[in-house]
Amino acid sequence: MKKELRIKKNKDFQTVFQQGRSFANRQFVVYSLPKEDQDFFRIGLSVSKKLGNAVTRNKIKRYIRQSVFELKDQLLPGYDYVIIARKPAAEMDFFMIKKSLTHVFKVGKVLKNR
């Protein structure tokens, strides 16, 4: 994922948490915040130490990044998204994570209509 498509700074995370809206399912919580001055979306990831060791957390983050990469044409541009993984995500494979993320994005109405 390119650098300009990532949220890295704590200040940016806090802005999305405080001003954005959230939607969730059992595996993920997603916060979204519209940004008028950008024509692309940015993604921030949060995977807690409660989900497992570093190997497990990095695997979850890789799966989420790849899922977002595959869904990038369907996601609405001009938004900041923060994705928080919950405990059940640790036992999921890539396809289950992609399906779950697609579901949570549909719940939040941030996917373009096909």
Rank of each mutant, 00 (worst) to 15 (best):
M1F: 03
K2F: 07
K3Q: 08
K3S: 10
K3E: 08
E4V: 03
E4A: 05
L5N: 12
I7H: 00
I7T: 00
K9D: 03
K11E: 10
K11A: 07
D12E: 15
F13I: 05
T15G: 09
V16I: 12
V16Y: 03
V16P: 07
Q18A: 15
G20Q: 04
G20T: 03
R21Q: 13
S22H: 04
F23K: 11
A24K: 10
A24W: 06
A24Q: 12
R26G: 15
Q27P: 05
V29Q: 04
V30W: 07
Y31W: 06
S32T: 07
K35E: 06
Q38S: 08
D39V: 00
I43P: 00
G44E: 01
G44A: 02
L45N: 00
V47H: 03
V47R: 00
S48R: 01
A54K: 01
V55R: 02
T56L: 06
R57E: 00
K59R: 13
I60R: 02
R62S: 11
R65L: 01
R65M: 02
Q66N: 10
S67W: 04
F69G: 12
F69N: 13
L71W: 09
L71P: 06
K72F: 10
D73C: 05
L75P: 10
L75F: 15
G78E: 08
D80T: 05
V82P: 03
R86S: 02
K87Q: 14
K87Y: 11
K87C: 04
P88S: 04
P88G: 04
E91Y: 05
M92G: 02
M96D: 06
I97W: 13
I97L: 13
K99T: 11
L101W: 04
V104S: 10
V104Q: 08
V104M: 09
V104E: 09
F105D: 05
K106I: 14
V107L: 15
V107Q: 15
G108F: 11
K109G: 13
K109Q: 14
N113Y: 15
N113I: 14
N113L: 12
